[in-house]
Amino acid sequence: MTAVEEENGPSGHHIELVDDNPPPRRSGEPSPGLRDSKGWDGKLRVPKSALLTNPEALSDSDYSDEDNVIPGEELAADEDLLDGEPLDVDEIVCTHSKIKDIPALRLERFTELARLCLRQNLIQDIEGLSALANSLKELDLYDNLISHIRGLDDLTNLTSLDLSFNKIRHIKHINHLKNLTDLYLVANKISNIEGLDGLTKLRQLELGSNRIRELKNLDSLISLEELWVAKNKITELRGLSGLPNLRLLSIQSNRIRDLSPLRELPQLEELYISHNALETLTGLEHNSRLRVLEVSNNRITSLAGLGPLVALEEFWASYNQISDFVEVEKELGDKKNLTTVYFEGNPLQLRSPALYRNKVRLALPQVQQIDATFVRMS
């Protein structure tokens, strides 16, 4: 049942605080502010009921034991698996079918195939796809047993490639895919960003849950709009100056301390940087286009530095060390587009939880949501 609190706000307006009381987020989960469920570390793209080929990848981003992969039950060669599909089909989705051998599917029959999804199988090698070169645009091999990127030489019409949740160590043999707009390499064993030269049409790159320590070799990605690198070992926000169209950066669960390198990204609109080592928000002065800022689970004590962020719509700052309501009003009170703030788990909420939301509402009368509470004016 929804709980409702009532309070008289500024100018005599009647305020209702409606608490939908959702369960608290677990540590490491993406913020509700994330726009794309394909982000963070890719887990949200797997149905909860799915049985993963690589289950250890969900709990250990450094998993590396080649002998500890659950092999599952291998079926005989499946020449008849797709016999029910019309030959002019443009999409084939075949998941959880324990497929190991792509050539055995005889895909060359399907001359108009544009999208092929073979998620959660036992595929070790990318092969047998050259006959689809003229038509294939989307290839999804999420959650298989692939160690090396090979077999893509002829697939130059690909626009989307998903090799997430495999066992890939090196990004190779894809920079000839000049039409790629979306590339997903989440939850592999990648240590270095490399092999992306010339992918000038790429708009979205997902590298979450790998072993990356440095942002580099990205300068040629001039069309990149979204970069997802959460859950790595990145210590600095450098190497991004060559991305003139980057509007979304998700770099949660890394080791970032300094925001000042973001001055090289004045066009940035969404920044997700929770679970890092931030102690201050200074350094965002040149990012005046930011609409969404997620800094939860850091060590931030002050909101100083938010002044220039005139376009701010959502500010997520749960579980920091923010304690001053006066500063909340000073730094955020003039943000006319601000609709959502999260301060749960901060001293200003923990000191007086019964009064906390009303104090925030009086300091920020323009907001429509405080944590999980929606505010109504009447």
Rank of each mutant, 00 (worst) to 15 (best):
L132Q: 04
L132P: 15
N134E: 14
E138S: 08
D140F: 13
D140M: 07
Y142D: 11
D143Y: 10
D143V: 05
D143M: 01
D143W: 03
S147G: 15
S147V: 09
I149T: 08
T159A: 06
T159N: 11
D162Q: 13
F165P: 14
N166Y: 05
I168V: 08
I168D: 06
H170A: 10
H170C: 03
I171T: 07
K172H: 06
H173T: 09
I174M: 04
N175E: 14
N175Y: 10
L177M: 07
K178G: 14
L183N: 02
Y184S: 00
V186H: 08
A187Y: 11
K189E: 04
E194W: 14
G195Y: 12
G195Q: 09
L196P: 01
D197G: 12
L199A: 04
T200N: 13
K201Y: 14
Q204Y: 05
Q204P: 00
E206F: 15
I212A: 03
K216N: 10
L221K: 03
E225N: 12
L227T: 00
W228G: 02
K231V: 06
K233R: 10
I234L: 03
T235N: 13
T235R: 13
E236H: 14
E236P: 11
L237P: 07
R238N: 15
G239W: 05
G239I: 07
S241T: 11
N245T: 06
L246I: 01
L246Y: 08
R247M: 00
L249N: 09
S250R: 13
N254L: 00
R255W: 10
D258R: 07
